[in-house]
C-alpha cells in the first residue's frame, strides 16, 4: 500500500504538486496520466525518494519514506531516459545492478531470451540503439521481482513486438499480486493495461477511476476523447 498525504513540491517558485492525497492499495496497474508538466514524473520520483517533498508525507506499507532508503528494496523503477555508462557491456551492467541490489544470484537469462537481447550481451552500452537500451532498462526493472513496480514511459523506443512482450510482462507481474504504477503517452496502451487511472492536473488529482468510469463520466465513446475532454473541460 502506498499512501500519500498532502504532498506539496515546489521547484523554486514553481509549484508542481499542490497537496496531493492519494492511496494506492491492492494489486493492479495504476496509470498516472496528465498533460505535460502536471507532475507525473515528480510524483513518481517523490515516492522513489529522488525528489524531496516540500511538505507532506509518503508512507509505504505504513512506514514513512523520509530519510530512509531501505524501502527501495521493494521497488523496481524504470526511468524515463535510460542512459547507462557507455564503457560497460550489457552483461556487466546487469551483473553490477544485481550486485548493487545485493541479489547476485538472480538469473536474467529468461528475461534476456524473452527480450531477444542475447546478441547484445557483450556490446558496450554506448553503442546500443535507443530501443535496445530500453530493453536493457526493462530487463533491469523486471529482474528483481519486487512488490512495487514504477514504470516511467515504458513504451519509449519499443517496436510493436517488444510492446506486446511488455504488456505480457506487466500482466504477469500483476497476476503475482504486485502494485504497478506507470505513466505513458500511448493512450491505447494505458487503456488496455490499466485498472485504475489517476489523472493529474496542475498538481492535483483531478480524476481517479477506471477507464470505463472515465468514458461514462465524460460521455465519450473512446478513451482518447475522454482524456481530451478532461483537459478541455478544465480549460473552460
Amino acid at each position: 500500500m502506498i499512501e500519500i498525504k498532502r504532498l506539496y513540491k515546489n521547484f523554486g517558485k514553481l509549484e508542481v504538486l499542490k497537496g496531493i492525497d492519494l492511496v494506492i492499495e491492492g494489486k493492479g496497474v495504476y496509470a498516472i496520466l496528465g498533460p505535460n508538466g502536471s507532475g507525473k514524473t515528480t510524483l513518481m520520483k517523490c515516492i522513489l525518494g529522488m525528489v524531496l517533498p516540500t511538505s507532506g508525507e509518503i508512507l509505504l506499507r505504513d512506514e514513512s519514506i523520509k530519510k530512509n532508503w531501505k524501502y527501495r528494496q521493494d521497488i523496481d523503477y524504470l526511468p524515463q531516459i535510460a542512459n547507462f555508462p557507455g564503457n560497460l557491456t550489457v552483461k556487466e551492467l546487469i551483473r553490477m545492478i544485481k550486485d548493487l541490489r545485493r541479489k547476485p544470484d538472480l538469473d536474467e537469462t529468461p528475461l534476456i531470451n524473452r527480450l531477444k537481447l542475447e546478441p547484445y550481451l557483450s556490446k558496450k552500452l554506448g553503442n546500443l540503439s535507443g530501443g535496445t537500451k530500453q530493453k536493457v532498462n526493462l530487463t533491469l526493472t523486471f529482474l528483481f521481482d519486487s512488490p512495487y513496480i514504477f514504470l516511467d514511459e515504458p513504451t519509449t523506443g519499443l517496436d510493436p513486438a517488444a510492446l506486446i512482450i511488455l504488456k505480457e510482462m506487466i500482466e504477469e507481474e500483476k497476476s503475482k499480486g504486485k502494485i504497478i504504477v506507470l505513466t505513458s503517452h500511448i493512450m491505447s496502451f494505458v487503456e488496455e493495461i490499466s485498472d485504475d487511472i489517476i489523472f493529474l492536473l496542475e498538481g492535483n488529482v483531478y480524476f481517479r477511476g477506471t477507464a470505463e468510469f472515465l468514458k461514462e463520466k465524460t460521455q465519450k465513446p473512446d478513451f482518447i476523447h475522454a482524456i481530451a475532454n478532461l483537459l478541455t473541460e478544465q480549460n473552460v
Binding site: L48, G49, M50, W69, K70, Y71, R72, Q73, I75, Y77, P79, I81, A82, N83, F84, P85, G86, I97, L100, R101, L140, F150
Partner: peptide, 16 residues
C-alpha cells in the same frame, strides 16, 4: 556524463 546512470542508482536501495 554519468548523470542518468546516477538517477538509475538513486532509485536503487542505496544511500544517497
Amino acid at each position: 556524463s554519468s548523470k542518468e546512470f546516477t538517477e538509475l542508482l538513486l532509485a536503487l536501495p542505496l544511500k544517497r
